[in-house]
């Protein structure tokens, strides 16, 4: 968690990249992570693949299906990540769906994350009320930031509740959509970015969904602290493999 706080204190807009662990090949997890850090990425979301990723569009779902076919499991991901802190110093967040975490055991999962040096979790289908009631203490005990999502439809009252429960950043979904859907931001999104900025929340916001190039990155980070790119990066991995990473990241800012 400290690594997240430290990254957020930097005087620059943060670039965060999502990728699916075990994609394109089972053993690509560590090489991808190293390449992302070398290319100046500030935060990485490591996707724990799930068979039924409700909030994701076709690109990320296809990468999850492929990763599962490659044999990726929670156990294997943790094994791959052992000793990762000898090589990588940027914040690492695991992003996945709640069921695999539940089957691993939430406490065991949190403990393992802490041992490895994972800084936070994004579990889109773990609702705020459940988190506060059952899991918040556990996350806090293991110094894991729980990153919540907000959308243009989230009420101010609920945003305040989410802000209260957050201890890293808030994942601001740019529009009502699944991942990989939109291209370019309309007036509507820009005014949403401004509206959230004016709320003066305790936690900085990082924008995700719909960011795929330098233009959308700079639009998204006009007010927000950073932006997350997922589907566009997965497409690069699909088309060019790991050798496409450097040029993809360089053209973003």
């Amino acid at each position: 968690m400290k690594r997240i706080q430290k990254a957020l204190q930097q005087d620059k807009k943060l670039l965060s990249i999502y990728f699916t662990a075990g994609f394109p090949n089972l053993d690509d997890t560590i090489p991808v992570l190293k390449s992302l850090e070398e290319n100046g990425v500030d935060i990485v979301e490591i996707g724990l693949p799930f068979s039924d990723p409700l909030a994701d569009g076709p690109t990320i779902q296809a990468s999850s299906t492929e990763a599962l076919k490659n044999g990726m499991t929670t156990e294997i991901l943790f094994k791959q990540l052992e000793g990762i802190r000898d090589h990588i110093s940027i914040p690492l967040i695991i992003m996945g769906y709640f069921n695999p975490v539940l089957q691993y055991g939430v406490e065991a999962f949190c403990k393992k994350c802490a041992e490895i040096g994972i800084d936070g979790l994004i579990l889109p289908d773990l609702p705020l009320a459940e988190y506060n009631l059952h899991y918040r203490q556990l996350f806090e005990k293991h110094n894991l930031a729980n990153i919540f999502l907000i959308t243009p439809q989230t009420s101010e009252e609920r945003i305040r509740e989410i802000d209260e429960a957050s201890n890293g950043f808030i994942y601001m979904v740019s529009s009502a959509s699944t991942t990989g859907k939109t291209s370019g931001f309309a007036e509507e999104q820009i005014s949403y970015f401004n509206r959230i900025d004016e709320l003066q929340l305790n936690n900085p916001q990082i924008v995700g969904f719909g960011i795929n190039n330098a233009e959308t990155f700079s639009q998204a980070t006009l007010k927000a602290k950073g932006a997350i790119i997922g589907s566009a990066f997965i497409k690069t991995l699909t088309n060019d493999g790991l050798s496409g990473i450097t040029s993809f990241i360089k053209q973003l800012r």
Partner: peptide
């Protein structure tokens, strides 16, 4: 099945030990 989460509900569901449906 074992308890888990499918389509927004905690219920019994058929899944792998890794939690894939």
């Amino acid at each position: 099945g074992k308890p888990g989460i499918i389509h927004g509900s905690k219920t019994l569901l058929m899944q792998t030990t890794d939690g894939q449906i």
